[in-house]
């Protein structure tokens, strides 16, 4: 098999995931796009492992590790998204702007006001 087939497919899947991460608003849809990007990398790892005929099978072992880490990541990520939804009533990442730099607020007020929403969120939890 020509090596370009899996490599090009992995590139296109990765860029699809990149578009999803940048363009989606719901945090869970962003997590789905991250899964697509991780799968593109896994496809590359398996294809190059089969191509190189590695005796250690480093590519396939790393693919297994990536899958396990992705499972851990999706668990933690969904827990964080649920916590944010419980505290804020929304999981739209556009609206989570507590850490954003506001053009009107000065630097001093930004530092002074920083602990405020943090304690509020913990009180609401």
């Amino acid at each position: 098999m020509h090596l370009a087939y899996p490599a090009v497919l992995a590139v296109l899947l990765f860029c699809t995931g990149l578009y999803g991460v940048l363009a989606r608003r719901n945090a869970i849809l962003v997590l789905m796009s991250v899964e697509l990007m991780l799968n593109a990398v896994n496809l590359n790892l398996v294809a190059f492992d089969v191509w190189l005929r590695d005796t250690l099978h480093a590519g396939q072992a790393l693919t297994l590790f990536t899958i396990a880490i992705a499972a851990a990541e999706i668990g933690i990520g969904l827990a964080i998204v649920l916590l944010v939804y419980r505290n804020r009533g929304s999981s739209d990442i556009d609206r989570l702007r507590d850490l954003a730099e506001r053009p009107d607020g000065g630097d001093a007020t930004g530092h002074g006001a920083q602990p405020q929403p943090d304690t509020e969120a913990e009180a609401a939890a």
Binding site: L3, A4, A7, V11, T16
Partner: peptide, 23 residues
């Protein structure tokens, strides 16, 4: 951004592995 990165990466990958076959 996605189209630009897709174009760049497809060009690089095809150019690099043009003559490579998996056995």
């Amino acid at each position: 951004v996605a189209l630009a990165s897709a174009g760049t990466l497809v060009w690089v990958v095809v150019d690099a592995f043009r003559a490579t076959w998996i056995d």
